[in-house]
């Protein structure tokens, strides 16, 4: 059984129908790249999984649990981590506090200081800034913080919405190394990206969506080699 199964998902923002009968699966321990043009429905798909779309129908199950009937906060408790596109570092809170809010509802009791030490090893840049206001850091650092906040509760799966957007290339490379490390430690990743080449190099499999529907599925390696398909569905 796949870790995340999405079947015939439809989702709306008010009157606009964004996702049209989308189905995909994410297997335990893989990185799945979800790519497609701007406005194809990538963000809406992961928002529907997290419980942030005003209206969604179909079937979404995570580790065998049906998600659509659950409020967002209960989905987190099943082991779903989320890194939103806008990062959502909470203003007025320090870097440490932004990490702590990732732990306030964690499934298992996690020792806060230990968890923050562990995070600091993965993110040396954050370690030096624990007392600083999170929202005053650079975009790249805020992105790292958003990822760290999603990781700290040790979720089974993390949904990442365009993590490389607007980030210095050197940090994007660092992020890639981190994502591989996460996968190797058994954490499943669903990676929504505009930076298609980078995402495909990282991912195991890829799903292309267009106008709220899946239009292509392939191994990441074969899609990386297929310039024509990339051009047809992902060119900006």
């Amino acid at each position: 059984m796949a870790m995340l199964e999405i079947e015939d998902l439809n989702a709306w923002y008010g009157a606009s129908h964004i996702i049209h009968g989308l189905s995909l699966t994410v297997e335990q321990g893989e990185i799945l790249a979800l790519v497609g043009r701007n406005g194809a429905g990538k963000t809406s798909t992961i928002k529907a999984v997290m419980g942030l779309m005003p209206r969604a129908t179909g079937r979404v199950s995570f580790c065998g649990r049906e998600l659509l009937a659950l409020p967002a906060h209960e989905r987190f408790r099943l082991g779903l981590g989320y890194v939103p596109e806008e990062r959502r570092i909470v203003p007025g809170l320090t870097v440490r506090e932004n990490l702590q809010i990732g732990l306030v509802s964690s499934r298992a009791p996690i020792d806060e200081d230990e968890a923050i030490d562990e995070i600091a090893q993965n993110f040396p840049r954050l370690k030096e800034r624990l007392g600083q206001q999170g929202s005053t850091m650079s975009g790249g650092e805020q992105q790292m913080l958003a990822i760290a906040r999603a990781m700290i509760s040790k979720p089974k799966m993390i949904l990442l919405d365009e993590p490389s957007e607007g980030i210095m290339p050197v940090l994007v490379e660092e992020m890639g190394v981190l994502f591989r490390k996460l996968r190797d430690s058994g954490i499943t990743l669903l990676l929504v990206e505009q930076n298609v080449e980078w995402a495909l190099k990282l991912a195991d499999r890829a799903v292309i969506i267009d106008q709220g529907e899946v239009v292509h599925r392939a191994s990441a390696a074969s899609l990386l080699a297929n310039a024509e398909i990339q051009e047809r569905y992902c060119a900006v």
Binding site: A72, H73, F76, R77, V90, Q100, V104, S105, S106, S153
Partner: peptide, 24 residues
């Protein structure tokens, strides 16, 4: 306190607190 942290963060960004497991 932990509860205070949730209140401060929830006042600024309720949506992120929901996806971090807080029943707003």
């Amino acid at each position: 306190t932990r509860f205070g942290l949730i209140v401060r963060a929830g006042a600024r960004d309720p949506q992120i607190m929901r996806v971090l497991g807080v029943d707003m």
